[in-house]
Design a protein around this nucleic acid. Structure first.
Lengths: 347, 347
DNA sequence: ATCAATCGAGCAAGCGTTTGCTCAATTTCA
DNA sequence: TGAAATTGAGCAAACGCTTGCTCGATTGAT
């Protein structure tokens, strides 16, 4: 049998309500009583029943996590565990715990979310993806339930709080980096066009080219799945155009891995024949062969900040309008992009 | 304001208890009434309050997940998302949801678990690691709370339900495979000796050698962290012994990645100079350079089975003794281990 | 010494469900 | 046709905690 607040009350010779107030550390209780009650709790090994508390309280101290319906996919990308680590760190700091829902179809995910929200199972929700025409976001919005999106939401982004990398800027910088290394024929391989991240990075890429006075060639732009296989397929296509690119910007490390191994198979050297840069700087980027030049986007930070925003919202300490947090990024230069050709800098 | 069972009752002109029984699909309610109530629920958009239900019920339909204290580590290994996927699939099939707790120190993790258990927040717990002298397992055991371990527990394993790969067998098979390819100087690189998985795989390795009449050399056995860096360090050591090994069994894909890139840096060819095989067959094993020969251990299956066992335990349909589920594995041969030298097989 | 203000703690009414019991209405059987 | 058995639905008491309100006791001011 569980030890309840009543047991503690009896043991400490006070009323249950007093025990409750001790737990809440209410100033209405004298120090002496508090200590007595606390030692009783200790002695009996008391732990409050979460459900009773939530019922009385109308708050759950937990946060719902929404994965994309094709959880398979995101779960294979190291992005996920890292963002989760960020979320869980911040959540723990503030006494929140995490509640996950996954589902195979979009419908399943949505109904999971509805259950979380309507069933008052969580105080707020973090959406771990951003897709066009997403039902979950629509639902959360219309019910005015606290939520935060990781990634840039579509549509009326101004009313939604989200955390994101400045992918446009990152795409631009990366492309510029290749340009500065002497490259003029630079290609881009992106993931699904439905994802904001792909669009932003590609736009940044295009802008950088334009700034450099280089025309943007459609046949230099490929799209593929966010996985290694996609990268492999895309790179084959790119190399069959006339004047094949000497450098390629890849929108995801996992894809870049596919690109690299395909290039190797084709007998091309990296970075001598084709330079490669990519994004996310996941763990294995450092350990691929050759190591990947990649944009460190601080995935942990994305998760951490998202949680922070959500907790603000839950606590009503957030403004009523959507907030936008941009987590800074920086380029980590490794072998895959080669050295600046005319540079003598020691570094 | 939330829509409660009372609202539905009023709307359908029945008592709250009837609504409750309709939800539970009790045979005591007539079909006619059920339909009326259901359409009322639909119309009002009713969703049961989880906490009220759990409180009255003494059951939460959710499962607690315990990560190792250095969550950082496990979260970087692709093992984790994959096992999570298995867990979440099975959990969802049975209407369970997932509740995570993480913590930086061992103490934090333990107190998180205690809160889950004593606070009646979950119906059962899955422990995602297996370590010697683990407080969490000790605690769960002594409170007789339903739990399952992924990996082989230490100590009195017979009373604990766990799912595992037959790592001993896998280690033996892999080593034998290298032997059959003609290798006689075979080394082993394992992770922390505190982990059951390391011990088992190493023992299998040693057995295979003995079966082949090859003495087990201590200087052929290295241990390192379960990550790429560890692999790199270990391989350097191994290659400095006299008669350096021509093949190496690595206990983890991520470590093997480190091994491979270190070997390449040293100018050694894989598999010609050194053959490499490893375990887990995580996603990137297929895409490394060269692709890794690795033991597919069906990580998804481990998660899935663990959840299955736990649900059995929760529902009392499990026997009172510990159950042991072994998920089958098989070797996936890729380039990193080379071809059988005297074989003409096309495949 | 008297009264108002303050303080500390208890009472009891929720929070939204579940479920054992009760009870009226209907069916079954002799 | 009457009594017993069966069926369908409602009553009300939990489940463990929070919190507005009440109230006696202590304190301070006059």
């Amino acid at each position: 049998m569980q030890i309840t607040i009543k047991d503690v009350a009896k043991h400490a010779n006070v009323a249950p309500s007093t025990v409750s107030r001790v737990i809440a550390n209410s100033p209405r209780i004298s120090q002496k009583t508090k200590e007595r009650v606390r030692s009783s709790m200790e002695e009996l090994g008391y732990h409050p029943n979460i459900h009773a508390r939530s019922l009385a309280n109308r708050s759950t101290q937990s946060i719902g996590l929404v994965m994309p319906s094709a959880a398979t996919k995101i779960l294979q990308n190291p992005f996920f565990p890292e963002v989760l680590r960020g979320i869980s760190t911040k959540a723990h700091q503030n006494g929140y715990s995490l509640y996950m829902t996954t589902g195979v179809t979009e419908e399943e995910v949505l109904s999971g979310v509805i259950e979380m929200v309507q069933g008052r199972r969580v105080d707020g929700v973090i959406v771990l993806y951003s897709r066009e025409d997403d039902k979950v976001v629509q639902y959360l919005r219309q019910t005015k339930f606290p939520f935060v999106v990781v990634g840039k939401p579509f549509g009326d982004a101004s009313s939604i709080t989200y955390v994101d990398t400045d992918n446009y800027l990152a795409g631009r910088e990366v492309t510029k980096h290749l340009y500065n290394l002497g490259h003029r024929r630079i290609a881009f391989i992106g993931g699904s066009d439905k994802l904001a991240v792909t669009q932003d990075r590609r736009n940044g890429y295009a802008t950088a080219l334009m700034e450099a006075g280089i025309p943007v060639r459609e046949d230099y732009i490929a799209r593929a799945e966010f996985m290694t296989k996609g990268g492999a397929k895309a790179v084959r296509e790119l190399l069959h155009v006339d004047e094949p690119p000497t450098a390629v910007v890849v929108s995801d490390d996992m894809m870049a891995l596919g690109v690299i191994s395909t290039l190797s198979e084709m007998g091309l050297k990296i970075p001598e024949d084709v330079a490669v840069v990519s994004f996310n700087n996941v763990y294995i980027a450092e350990h691929s062969n050759p190591p990947l030049t990649s944009v460190e986007i601080n995935i942990f930070g994305l998760g951490f900040e998202a949680t922070n925003c959500l907790i603000e919202q839950i606590g009503d300490s957030a403004p009523p309008y959507g907030k936008r947090v941009i987590v800074p990024h920086y380029l980590v230069v490794r072998q895959s992009c080669g050295q600046k050709k005319n540079s003598h800098a020691a570094e």
